[in-house]
Amino acid sequence: MAELAVGKPSGEYRKGLQSGISIAIGYAPIALTFGLLAKTTGLSIGETALMSLLVFAGAAQYISLSLLSLGTGIFEIVLTTFIVNIRHFLMSTSLNEKWEDEQAANKVILSFGITDETFSVAAVREEKVTSGYMLGLISVSYASWVICSGLGHLIGASLPQTLQESMSVALYAMFVGLLVPSMKKSAKVVFLAAIAACFNTIFTLTNTLSTGWAIVLATLLSAVIVEWIESVKNRPRGHGHE
């Protein structure tokens, strides 16, 4: 029982793997399509696999393909990638607070695998996050991403049209599945999600910001506003000393 409470490293790894399965399912159709598009854009299978291996960021990889086909220069593509992925800075900062590991090197290596999806799964976990858990979570997601990218290029086709369409909901459904249990427990979570969703929708529909910045700004605004309201509400009445 003592072992259970502490959480053996291998047990944590397995839990991470299990939590990563829905990510792996969600990545499959996106990665297959990425491989296919990379092929039609003129990338070799080696280049396609290399990009998925080294970059591991869905949205940025898709954008790079469309920029390549427009004949955009390399510097601009790298810069766009940076802008799209800067949101991960916020996610890593948040995750750092609940991820415990004395060994700094573990976080340095595993931070490579922080995506919207791996972050979301880890961040809503009730227990503290460990490196073993992150390793499991990331390895199954990463494997799905890299293997399916290669397969998409190799087969030169994605899933049947109807299945492809229905599977496009997978990652969104996962986000909903992660969010709802916390929403049921706390009104604060409902506000946080709703306010961020509103801001992001406004930024996106009015085309004021690129996708990366829209998510960063919507998230920050919502997180700060809700925190501020809460601190005002909890401030003791009267202006005496605390």
Partner: peptide, 24 residues
Amino acid sequence: QGILKNVPYATLGALIFPGILFIN
């Protein structure tokens, strides 16, 4: 710290909307 604890739930809201409306 409070803001950083809020980030995951705000992120999820922003990741779901409006993206989910445009999958088709």
